[in-house]
Design a protein around this nucleic acid. Sequence first.
DNA 1: ATCTATTCCTGGCTGC
DNA 2: TGCAGCCAGGAATAGA
Length: 283
Amino acid sequence: MIGPYRWRGPYCQPWHHQSVPELPEVETVVRTLAPRLTGRQVRGVRFLSVLAFRGNRRRAATMLRGRQIEAVRRHGKFIVFELGGGPRMTIHLGMTGSLLWGGRPGPYTRAVFELDEGRLVFDDPRQFGSIEIGAALPDRLARLGPDAFEISAEEFAARLKDRRGRIKPLLLNQRFLRGLGNIYTDEALFRARIHPLAVAARLSRARVGRLHAAIQEVLGEAIASGGSSISDYVDAEGRRGWFQMQHRVYGKEGEPCPRCGAPIRRIVVAQRGTHYCPQCQRR
DNA sequence: ATCTATTCCTGGCTGC
DNA sequence: TGCAGCCAGGAATAGA
């Protein structure tokens, strides 16, 4: 992995030091890649794994060949490639996906895009990521909720108002709000001092406001720390920016809460490891 | 609407 | 030391 660590595959550190690509990581990838990819022409595509692309790979390669990349943007956790005169392509990084500009294909490379200038390599050891092309795509993207980093406090409150589910599963639901994943959800709930199992509709106006602010704060800080090392990010060396965010609760079970000192607790919510301070985040 | 369980995958960790 | 088994989770899906 990255920074002070030598590349020995993506799992040199325990999980709680790992950043799964969520909104800020995808945003960083897009900001890095957009200026390099925009205007480039796809010369050819190789899919090195059956799982990387669900569908007819040969047809997909034909559809992509010769297309110009007109724009690269983020939609929630999806990376959207606007291709001239053709359907869109999306890449989702899943759990362990990464896109490397000019990278060399390695043991976990699932797809290689050869461009008129340069090359884009999609690595994904666990293969939870996916590449999609086709007509159904705009629909699928449109079904997602508003962007977690763009939604206003008013709209956020309005959307929460009649939801009877627990707050954490709701925040993870991409059709409710797009972009948050397990880690930043825990971090935002901690900052807002809200219990992950609190019923969404029953949160006070003040708490909803705090939660909205906490989400913006956490995502903003993470993007800023990712952005600060963008130039490093691009060389195959890595994802340094992804690890600069300091987690306060995620992966810190048993460690003292940075606010009150009580030991951080870990429970399972919606089949996800969930970290919170039982003292600061009351039900 | 909301909840739970299951599936996909693999490296690293645990425990015997 | 070796190795089986478990664990992590984004998202789709099925079923309650």
